[in-house]
Design a protein around this nucleic acid. Structure first.
Lengths: 118, 118
DNA sequence: TAAACATATGAACAAATGCTCATATGTTTA
DNA sequence: TAAACATATGAGCATTTGTTCATATGTTTA
């Protein structure tokens, strides 16, 4: 974030920005983490996985089958979803059953859906 | 999306998936568009721009100054935000003033924030 | 315990992405 | 109208990303 005590970019001193905008601006790290979270949603495969799990919990194999993709590709993406704590999982015999981690996930999917359907 | 009348991936016939999951699965195009939308949120620079505009409408120059980035970089990103209809703009003299397009944007930012702060 | 099954993961590669630099377009002012 | 200012954009480049392929890890069953 930059220092803007003195306008050096718009050096004629004009600015449409209120003075306190800079103060209450979130921390660099917070915004970076927020972007990283959205990035996880920003892939068609991962969105499909999340939507599938929204309908019903499933094992890796079932997801791969439903989406018509390889087990490896799905597993790699589930890893990303796990790291962002968007999905949780439990082992059940040979299978690992995945499901959505919390309600934020479906809320975000819902808000996104609303936006694109206007 | 794949056909799963007969389980060929989990060929022992096991599946934890309810039969109607496939039917009510959203269209390929819809999920692709949804992912594209989230992708726009999935970049730190664009998130910063959106957050800045959440605080106050601003011209390109002000955003660049606030974020400590070049005018060109900001302008390129505003183009992306425009295309996704996340920001709107009006010309005012030499400047172009940008602002958030609608309430979905702040709602999505808010939900994301909630998730990362747990 | 060996074989079969289910999932995870590392390396490699092609495609997508974000920034910089140079320059074009559009607006105001001297 | 020329110069200054504000913004937009194309090309190039380095980085990131998603998939595939091969293989490792973990679990069940014969």
């Amino acid at each position: 974030m930059a220092e803007i005590e003195k306008n050096t970019c718009c050096d004629d001193g004009h600015t449409h920005m209120a003075a306190d905008v800079v103060q209450r601006f979130p921390k660099e790290e917070t915004l970076y983490n927020l972007a990283e979270l959205f990035k996880v949603f920003g892939d068609a495969t991962r969105i499909k996985i999340l939507y599938a799990l929204f309908e019903s919990e499933m094992c890796v194999c079932d997801i791969a089958c439903l989406l018509g993709m390889t087990q490896s590709a799905i597993s790699h993406q589930l890893r990303v979803l796990k790291q962002s704590r968007l999905v949780k999982f439990r082992r059940e015999g040979k299978s690992v059953i995945y499901s959505l981690a919390d309600s934020h996930v479906s809320t975000m999917l819902g808000q996104g859906m609303e936006h694109i359907q206007e």
